[in-house]
Design a protein around this nucleic acid. Structure first.
Lengths: 345, 345
DNA sequence: CTGAAAGCGCTTACAG
DNA sequence: CTGAAAGCGCTTACAG
């Protein structure tokens, strides 16, 4: 098909008896074109089956109408978490609304993160970037800020000192409320098993947990706080550790459903009764948390909304808007893993 | 940052005292450049922090190094199915291996499917397309074949008559084996609840089911065959229908885990014992099928491998290769929903 | 092995 | 309201 001559703006111009400039203006809906001319040109475009070449347009105008999605470190892993899938759904929905495409770009194996980003941006394939996470001392955020390239983070700055476009939940409050719920269930020894310690979300969720403990005048015990990865294994391993070492908490807060699944699996295997002996609660409200062997109390962070809002903020930024943030409200779903429910919630 | 003059091939040429053509050849590793020159040019590129502009390159060479991923009809729905997530993972992995990016493009709301595709291809943003499904009388496949644009389908032709690049499981055999397993469990009245009837996978899975019944000299009963959507609701509704109307099967085969979840939910709510009264089996082996309230027997179709293989075939096709197909072997996981297991499988 | 020149298909000041 | 011309940053025959 490469051999077939493609229809260009020139063909349309010739047929409509106008200049290519005029056709170009019709395509971009320039107001400076007479209605009559516009109508005629549009007719010719349809007649010829003409569609604009986005690449040529990009080169001439430095606009690609494409959002870059950068996945942290290992794409395989990220893509496994249901959170990503949800967020992606929102991003695609948002992008579609505004006629943008989404480019999934990943870091080549051993390449340096910033190097990959430079390459991607210099390639001119994207107008802006959405980062799926924010980390402590995030290099990607620092770099994008430095070169002043439009971006929006799904996540938050560590504290108020730093400012950049972002959408997030109020993770501190969500975790605080979840912990408080466990306290209200009469739990006295609440452990937290968290994912990746470099993620701001992890830091915030631990903070909220501690805030609730302090408020209830519970002691903050280092033996109850564990940090691993965002996976089942982490949950299983630390749950096992807690009981092997007779630390015996009566509640475990996991910072991600996947972690909670590992925790529950350990508890079930060891015939530890949920929620009476040990209550479990977690984050993300993936379909699994609802349908799990034991339905798990979980915070719905509305990842799809986060994704959609991130697109909105990014596009405003591309248009020249100021730095913005959006906080998406969370919803806590209490289920059997943390409460003796009489009926279905 | 728009104001900052970007480093171009000309700057590198000037610094290295060669022509832009030479720099271009160094970038593309042309063998016709002396090692010495290449080395010098590369040094200058690094010095200047030069990265090639992929858009300009695309326009000049008609190659974008980007794969388009076209999602069927409603992006929101597709993205919900774990199959998609798995396949996407494989696609991204495959694309990364060959230094390709992945463009997620979706059909605008009410636009005609082919119209959207024409627009996307004319835009020159992609070198080839991966289609996530194959359907009966698939218009997208027909169109891409007609214009001879490189593509690969995750799915199969309806029969041997049609040929196009594709990767798939042997769905007929997988479904045949799964049904046979239910028969071997002593089940006499096996119902099948299938997703979207326009999908080739659905057609093939029903075919495999019927093949097993015929072989076992069971009657093929229209009252046992139901077709809906790829969702929980479909499973729930038809399970309810089966029992409300006293059809009372002793096994239900679902063509997707999501459908099976609906089936199981109905059975549990109505205190129908699994697997003794009714056995359940399904497809896709999503994490949920393992961890569900009752672990569900499911066929692992290895969607991530399907995605990765689709990329390989597509790239070969872009390079001018012939039409190919790859069949990825499936794995059946027998779980408690269909068999009384003494130990964990 | 290297360079000059044309061209990829658009956009956009500038001029009228 | 419209057009001629330059330019976006590359690639690639063609010539040497």
């Amino acid at each position: 098909m490469q051999s077939i001559k493609r229809t260009t703006i020139k063909d349309v111009a010739k047929m409509a008896n106008v200049s290519p400039s005029t056709v170009s203006r019709v395509i971009s809906n320039s107001p400076r074109i007479s209605e009559e001319t516009a109508k005629r040109v549009k007719l010719c475009m349809k007649e010829l089956g003409y569609y604009p070449n986005a690449i040529a347009r990009s080169l001439a105008s430095s606009v690609s109408n494409t959002i870059g999605l950068i996945m942290p470190v290992r794409p395989g892993e990220t893509l496994l978490n249901p959170f990503f899938q949800e967020a992606l759904r929102g991003i695609v929905r948002g992008a579609t609304t505004f006629s943008y495409d989404v480019l999934l770009s990943t870091f080549q194996g051993d390449e340096d993160e910033i190097e990959s980003m430079k390459k991607l941006i210099s390639a001119s394939k994207i107008d802006g970037v959405i980062l799926m996470t924010s980390r402590v001392n995030d290099k990607a955020i620092a770099y994008l800020t430095e070169i002043n390239f439009p971006f929006c983070v799904i996540g938050s700055p560590l504290d108020e000192g730093q400012t950049f476009n972002h959408v997030d939940n109020d993770n501190i409050t969500a975790s605080y409320e979840l912990t408080k719920h466990l306290i209200q269930q009469g739990k006295k020894k609440i452990s937290i098993i968290a994912g990746d310690k470099n993620m701001i979300a992890t830091v915030h969720r631990i903070k909220g947990y501690e805030k609730a403990l302090i408020e209830a005048k519970y002691e903050i015990d280092e033996n109850l706080i564990y940090i691993g990865d965002f996976d089942e294994k982490t949950g299983y391993i630390y749950a096992k550790y807690l009981f092997d070492n007779k630390i015996n908490p009566d509640a475990i807060l996991a910072t991600d459903d996947l972690v909670a699944f590992g925790v529950v699996r350990y508890l079930l295997e060891n015939n530890i009764e949920i929620p009476n002996e040990v209550a479990v609660a977690s984050f993300n409200n993936s379909i699994l948390s609802r349908q799990f062997q034991i339905p798990i109390t979980s915070v719905d962070i509305h990842a799809d909304t986060l994704g959609e809002e991130a697109v909105k903020i990014l596009l405003e930024n591309i248009e020249g808007g100021n730095i913005k943030k959006t906080i998406v409200p969370h919803t806590i779903h209490i289920r059997k893993s943390s409460a003796n429910l009489s009926s279905h919630f």
